[in-house]
Amino acid sequence: MNLNTIIEGCKRQDSKCQEALVKQYAPILLRLCNRYLYDEHLAYDAMQDCFINVFKYINGYKEEGKFEAWIKRIAVNCSLNVRKKMSGSINIEEIEYTNDVPTFVPDFAAKFSTEDLLLLIERLPKSAAIVFNMYVVEGYSHKEIAEALDIKESSSRSQLTRARTKMIEMINDCKESEKIRMDKIRIQYQ
């Protein structure tokens, strides 16, 4: 069953197509939600809200953009809503961060696994991590981030600069030998 068939079936509320859609995107969306919430249960709730909204609004989906991007945007919104519900607001600090970001990182950074990268993002300050995720991974513009988080565009830029600076610091702190050793251990204990 290809994606267009699934989408058309979901528009008809065909449960078989809905199931296929859930099976295809649930693992991706759960990972995405987890990047914003750092809690498996909250991430699961956000993913569930996302699918409910997808089935509710799928008739409004115009096949202009990529479906995956559309569904991911819904997942990001649901994650931010869950975060808002939990803490009252998303609470992005309005800061001015003007440090110059170094433009180079060690070559071994290219060898980082997905788990390593998630760990690095998790260690970023929460506000900076949200902006970093939205800008770098999901491809939002600063304007879109500002609208979604209800902050100024300049704050979004500052948070991104802060995230990048911190990220590079953390990468530089890693040693290649340690990275290799960690990989070896990870493979052996899988």
Binding site: R31, T103, D107, A110, V136, V137
Partner: peptide
């Protein structure tokens, strides 16, 4: 390595990463 290349690689890896459901 250019930092932006690192971010590009990060985006590619994370956008398709999956978690068991």
């Amino acid at each position: 390595m250019d930092y932006l290349d690192f971010e590009k690689g990060l985006k590619d890896k994370l956008s398709q990463s999956r978690k068991e459901v």
